[in-house]
Design a protein around this nucleic acid. Structure first.
Length: 813
RNA sequence: GCCGAGGUGGCGGAAUGGUAGACGCGAGGGACUUAAAAUCCCUUAUCCUCUCUCUGGAUGUGUGGGUUCAAUUCCCACCCUCGGCACCA
């Protein structure tokens, strides 16, 4: 008797069976062919899992399952990035302590995640808020401190007035806070930094060997922003002050007609002439009021004032005026720039506005352009002109010679500059790992000794953001510090950026961790080290890391830096954490990003309840290419529902018949196609080829049981529950996910007969069916005999006859 | 401004030099049903031709050129959309 497919019953049953048999728990020590499949772990918010989570996790799981069936020992963990603003903001709103709400959210989320039916190893889950975890976050800080990669410095930093905390450079997007969108302001504060810039070159070089999306590598490259150039020293007239300018195009130095200094340059007040002092001071005041946002998006019209001072050109000894202008940034290069209006657009704009001279020093193709509009196209093929002894040299040759001469005279040197800034890791927020530093009564910082880790986050705190770190309110925290270190000692009140927590979690998964509130986890913890070096060596780098592209210049750069630092400290053997990175696309609704404020969030729950996880995840995969994302549609899911119902019926409720040669060929083509497609994450076309096979199977009225089992195996990565149930129904033993992936027989791929298309003068005029062994001559004769083709051939004499093996004949008359 | 990705039916998409539109959604028609849903069958790029049956032809992958027997695919120029960076010297 035929029983229709009942997803909710079937899926719940298999999820239970998998859990009971512990088939997804990986023995990290014993594994022979390790495959580390990782997705970016979520933060546990009070909201339900949304379509975006599913779109990330389900295909990633399908890929992991595919690898498992290929014979790998797949490790696929899941955890929670639970510190941070969402939980803290929720706590502020409701008054519930974040520890309580987070624990609750983690539990809810685990239940939801389990409904997807992913092959997660829940025995090795973790949460970054667990003291057992964050002691390692703190340990990492101490290691950085010990190795002088963590330091405290006062300076201008990004501050979000709404989140009431400082932010790292990477966390400012379009001049506003990455979290809440508020305009970021600059504040002068003393903060903790990690010296990521020390690794600039290494981070750049390492990119080359990574199998990452090209755009992500380019984004990191641009973020690191390497520029090769040199410093040039300028003597100030009637003074012994020397100003350095950085330039990448020193070959244009004879075109310098002015030099510009940033308004916040520390030497500026000493450089301004008395006559210009009032004007300059007014200008400095005016520009300092500009917010970061205005500086970036306000009118790009350049403003500036003359300082009244002149510099002496290092080659011509001519007087060059020093101007003050805010288009020169203090935090890049030397804060002083040589102005070459003829060959730099910004300098050109500035020179035109303040009628400064424009001197050409590189050969131009259209001279007018210099005077009226834009600068001439600067290309390294150009020739240097009007530049003393360098006249006539090609740009690159002249550039080298000029730097050499400057170095000889000790008034310049080669220099490589990076745009990357050190990572600001301290935050004036409550819900984070406390920075393990204490201050002695003189205010000098000392690391908290390791035996006091975890340096626990105090609980006697109101978590309202005031701009002051919430931990300052804790009586317990101060008392604890004085108890351990002595009277007058104070703790560091700032907590760490959550990106610190997520910079090493992929290592920590390898160590089993204590139970989560739900009782998950094995309960044992490898104490004493962040990661077992043998396991690290065996499992890292992560084989496949899937997550959003928004992390290109945040998490993905921090994690690489931390891994490199850990290697240098001697704790790990790998330099790079992630061998392959893939970004899933974005699922939109009616073309717009889903967001609560827009009210267009699609909840997976009702679809999953109605159709089951398999249908839902398969539909997401069928929508389009995984890396492209797509627009949500309610109706399209019907097609996947029909596919599942028809397949169920076709494999279990149709008579067993011998396969025709045609069907065998189709089956083996499908094995080939599905294998190749899943291997490159083209789930949409893998599914479509299974649909095609099903269409043929229905037409034929059945297949052998062996073929039915092969089809179930092909389905196992993408619809895991359904595939298990089919396998069981087809008399398979064991779990289908533990079966070997089907292989195809190349000999069976070719059909007996093939269709050859005939083109006349490039247009299709007919086709013929020939045996696969037909010779070229036979085929050409047959082609020319085709009725419709004859009509077109009559138009003229044959000029060319082309035969493409097994595909087409092209005739030209 | 710079860097990157992309532009194909009513819609999601397939095809990376060889039959454009696989597969699916939607739509139209039919079968089943008292009826509806579900299911099944047929049609479905546009236009002309044929529509009793068989057809045959023109146009068509953002725009304009080019290479080729053959171009969605390769080359040149341009337009548009999306993502990232942005006064970085």
């Amino acid at each position: 008797m035929f029983k229709p497919y009942n997803p909710s019953e079937v899926e719940a049953r298999w999820q239970q069976k998998w859990a009971d048999a512990k088939i997804y728990e990986t023995d990290l020590q014993k594994a022979k062919k390790p495959y580390y499949s990782l997705v970016m772990f979520p933060y546990p918010s009070g909201d339900k899992l949304h379509v975006g989570h599913w779109y990330n996790y389900a295909p990633a799981d399908s890929f992991a399952r595919f690898q498992k069936m290929q014979g790998y020992d797949v490790f696929s963990p899941m955890g929670f990035d639970a510190f941070g603003l969402p939980a803290e903001n929720y706590a502020i709103k409701t008054g519930v302590h974040p520890a309580i709400s987070t624990a609750k959210n983690v539990e809810t989320m685990i239940a939801q995640l389990k409904k997807i039916g992913c092959m997660y190893d829940w025995s090795k889950t973790l949460s970054t808020t667990d003291p057992e975890y964050y002691q390692w976050t703190q340990w990492l800080f101490l290691e950085m401190y010990k190795n002088t990669l963590a330091y405290k410095k006062k300076g201008n930093v990004n501050f979000c007035p709404s989140c009431q905390t400082v932010l790292a450079n990477e966390q400012v997007k379009d001049g506003s806070c990455e979290r809440c969108g508020t305009d970021v302001v600059q504040k002068s504060l003393e903060q903790w930094f990690w010296n990521i810039t020390k690794y600039s070159q290494k981070l750049l070089d390492g990119l080359e060997d990574l199998d990452w999306p090209n755009k992500t590598k380019i984004m990191q490259q641009n973020w690191i922003g390497r520029s090769e150039g040199c410093d040039v020293s300028w003597n100030v007239e009637n003074s012994d002050i020397v100003l350095d300018t950085f330039t990448t195009t020193v070959d244009t130095i004879y075109g310098v007609t002015f030099v510009v200094i940033a308004p916040d340059h520390p030497m500026l007040s000493k450089l301004v002439s008395d006559a210009e002092r009032t004007t300059v001071e007014a200008y400095i005041k005016q520009t300092s009021k500009k917010s970061e946002f205005d500086r970036q998006f306000g009118d790009k019209v350049k403003t500036g004032v003359f300082s009244g001072t002149y510099l002496l050109h290092p080659f011509t000894k001519k007087k060059v005026p020093l101007w003050v202008a805010d288009y020169v940034l203090m935090n890049y290069g030397t804060g002083v720039v040589m102005g070459v209006p003829a060959h730099d657009q910004r300098d050109m704009d500035f020179a035109k506005k303040y009628t400064l001279p424009i001197i050409q020093s590189i050969e131009s193709t259209s001279h007018e352009s210099l005077v009226y509009d834009n600068i001439d196209k600067y290309s390294v093929q150009g020739t240097i002109i009007d530049s003393g002894e360098y006249t006539g040299m090609k740009i690159l040759e002249g550039r080298k010679k000029i730097i050499d001469d400057l170095q000889k005279r000790s008034i310049g040197k080669r220099k490589i500059l990076y745009r990357l800034r050190d990572w600001l890791v301290s935050r004036q927020r409550y819900w984070g790992a406390p920075i393990p530093i204490v201050y002695d009564p003189e205010g000098k910082p000392h690391p908290v000794p390791e035996e006091h880790l975890p340096w626990t986050l105090p609980t006697d705190v109101e978590f309202k953001p005031t701009g002051k770190s919430p931990l300052t309110e804790s009586k317990e925290f101060l008392a604890r510090t004085e108890n351990i270190f002595g009277k007058g000692w104070t703790p560091e009140y700032d907590t760490m950026d959550t990106f610190v927590c997520s910079s090493f979690y992929y290592l920590r998964y390898l160590m089993s961790v204590p139970p989560l509130p739900s009782g998950e986890g094995l309960g044992g913890r490898e104490a004493g080290k962040l990661v077992d070096p043998a396991l690290e060596k065996k499992w890292l780098p992560v084989s496949m890391y899937i997550g959003g592209p928004e992390h290109a210049c945040m998490h993905l750069i921090y994690a690489r830096f931390v891994m490199m630092a850990l290697k240098d400290f001697g704790y790990v053997s790998n330099e790079e954490p992630f061998k392959i990175v893939v970004h899933q696309g974005l699922i939109t609704n009616k073309g717009a990003k889903m967001s609560k404020s827009k009210g267009n969030v699609v909840s997976p729950d009702s679809f999953v309840a109605q159709y089951g996880s398999d249908v839902f995840r398969m539909y997401l995969m069928f929508m389009g290419p995984f890396e492209a994302g797509g627009d949500w549609s309610d109706t399209g899911i019907r097609g996947t529902v029909r596919f599942v119902d028809r397949l169920w019926k076709a494999l279990l409720n149709t008579k067993v018949i011998q396969d025709s040669a045609l069907f065998q060929a189709a089956l083996h083509r499908t094995i080939k196609k599905v294998t190749e497609d899943i291997a490159v994450l083209h789930f949409n076309t893998a599914i479509s080829s299974l649909m095609q096979l099903l269409n043929l199977l229905e037409e034929k009225g059945g297949c052998t049981q062996e073929s039915a089992r092969i089809i179930s195996c092909l389905l196992a990565p993408i619809a895991p529950h359904l595939a298990e149930e089919l396998w069981l129904g087809l008399g398979g033993t064991g779990f289908i996910i533990e079966q070997k992936w089907p292989t195809y027989d190349p000999a069976l791929l070719v059909e007996e007969n093939m269709t050859i298309v005939i083109q006349v003068n490039g247009k299709v005029r007919g086709d013929i069916l020939v045996s696969k062994d037909a010779s070229k001559e036979e085929i050409l004769t047959l082609a020319k005999a085709n009725e419709n083709v004859k009509k077109w051939l009559a138009a003229g004499d044959m000029k060319k006859e082309i035969y493409i093996l097994g595909k087409l004949v092209s005739l030209v008359v």
